[in-house]
Structure formats: structure tokens, C-alpha cells
Design a protein around this nucleic acid. Sequence first.
DNA 1: GTCTATAAAAAGATAGAC
DNA 2: GTCTATCTTTTTATAGAC
Lengths: 180, 180
Amino acid sequence: MSRPPLAREAVLDAFTRILVDDGERAATMDATARAAGVSKGGLLYHFGSKSALEEALVRRLEELAREDVAEIESADEGVVAAHLRSSQNTGSPLDVTILAVSRLAQNGNDAASSSLRRVRELWEESLRPHTRDETALQMVLLVSDGLYFNAVLDLNAVPGPSLEGAALDRLIDAVVTATT
Amino acid sequence: MSRPPLAREAVLDAFTRILVDDGERAATMDATARAAGVSKGGLLYHFGSKSALEEALVRRLEELAREDVAEIESADEGVVAAHLRSSQNTGSPLDVTILAVSRLAQNGNDAASSSLRRVRELWEESLRPHTRDETALQMVLLVSDGLYFNAVLDLNAVPGPSLEGAALDRLIDAVVTATT
DNA sequence: GTCTATAAAAAGATAGAC
DNA sequence: GTCTATCTTTTTATAGAC
């Protein structure tokens, strides 16, 4: 396990934050370098090009996703409920990384699209043994996708009727009842 | 009902297509003008700036959304089923416009975010009388959001296990059973 | 209404000093 | 490893001819 240079990680963090907060167009190398507290030249020492920077973020997503699945598998409230609950939170490193990579995917980065698809397949494999049948499995995955999609909108302007505590619990109950 | 100039509509169509196919960054005024078969100067006669072009697309979304709700309200198979089915299709004018506007929303366009939120509220109002309770209503909306979110990924690289005919029917059945 | 030409700013990337 | 300076290309926008 080689420990990556601090500056390198700071650049990836800054790139992620700008992608999520302001979008792909705002996430220039200039803006990323400034937010990370380095110069453009400094950034280009760690990532030789814009696409190298993007590839590094995609690799980070794959690592975080594997860790997340392992955690959910051991959750007390059950895999389905734990998965849905983690889809609502938009603050974790995995959550922001998914949103950042989905910005790249939506701007024509095919590696980013494939990676998101693989993450979804990881979840699918993890959830399958805990759902009634394939239809139920798809329903859980789609509700989870829906929670993410809404998180995307909330980050921008008008916060929608995001599910607070009790309402989220009732939704999770309903999905668990309908699918397990 | 004033009939809008043909060139104007062609520009909006081209802008939409590029946003959906290649992303926000690719949707420059130059590329849009070329795809619409006009010059940059011609485009700028109809839309005085980039943001004017974006605003016009948002306005088009609101019109299409109102028409869509009216159609679904009169569907034979029921409002919930018809809504879910229309969330799967990614070819209709409304569908591509939603995807295009969501690209703008994800690049910091607040008006686009608000508009998407309003469209979702329109659906919510339309579905509420046809669902068992608030939890069921949210479940239908989230599955619908999930279908859209997946359509976004499919448009790029690896087409995921998108629900074909029979599987989609089973999913709709299950959601209808669980929510109405 | 539509075009060409061009200005002004911002983007990615390179070179070389420290 | 990190910086400044500079080059090239792209993007938005303006001016003015037709």
C-alpha cells in the first residue's frame, strides 16, 4: 500500500468538489489547481493531462465502491435497507465521488460511464441474495438510483421535498416489504 | 399561437441533441450552429447569447411537460403504469428535453434545476390521487427517477441491463401492486 | 435574416527556472 | 516537486456587409 503524495490527493479532492458543486465546465485545471492550493504547473506534475486527472478520479471511485459494498454486507438492519439508506446520504466520500464521476460520464467520458455501470453491478450482486426475485431486485436498484438522481438536483438550486428521517424510514420499510 | 421561425426551432433541436449525445461541454454555439445548418451569426440573431439559448430550452421543457401530464391522465392502463412506461422511453421530445436540461442543471444553471423540480412536482400532483399514500407516491416517483437516471448512463457507453418488454411489464405490475 | 471577419477571454499544455 | 511564463486552440461575442 504505497501512500500517495498529499498534494496529489488534495488535487483529486478539489477536482471532485468543483465537479459536484459547479459542474464539469467549471472544473478546469486552473480552477482545480487554485482550489487545491497548487499552481497549474504543480498539478501537471502529478497529472500530466486533463484525461489523466479524470482517469485517477475514476480509479478512486472503484476503490471506494468496493469498500462500501463490504460495509453494507455486514449491516445490522439488512442489506436492502442499508443500501437504500446509504443512497440518500450525499456527504460520504463515495457519494460525492459517484456524483463527480457521473458529471464526467455525462460529458462523453466513456471510462466514467463504464465505471458507474460496474459500481451498479457490484450493488446488484450484493443485493440479489437478499431480494425475492429479479423484479424485486430491479425495484430496489431503481429506487436507489432515484435517490441519487434527486440528490443531484438538490445540490443545485431548489431543494426538493427530500425525504427526512421518518419519511425515509417509511419508504425503506415499504420497499423492504415489497421486495424481500 | 405564433409560429416560431423554423431556423430557431432547428437551433434548439440541435442544441438538445448535442447536449444529450455529447454533453454540455460539446454543446458550444459553434457546434450547435453547424449541426443546425446555420452560421454562428445566424444563431446569434435568434439567441443573443449562450444563456438566452439555454433559457429558451428550459421554456420548451415546461411546455412539453404540461402536454405530457395531460396525456398520461387519460391513459387506459392507469396513471401510475402509464407514467412508469413513459419514464423508460428515451426517444420522445419530452424525454430528450429533460435529459438536455438536466445537463444544464448539472453545470450550474439554476433555472434549469428549478424547472426540472417543477416538472417533477407536476408528476407528483398527477400521481397523488392514484396512489395509496405518500410513501407509495414517493416510491413511484423514485422508480421513475431511477429509470431516467439509467437512461442517462445507457446513452453513453456500456448499455446496462435495460429492462426489455416483459421485465418492464413485471416491474410496473409490482410497483402498481405495491402502491395503489 | 443570415453571413464573414475579427476581437477578447479562457482553456489545455509546454519549457524551463528554482 | 513546485513555480512562472508563454504558446495554441477554442469559445463567446461584436461589427458590419449582403
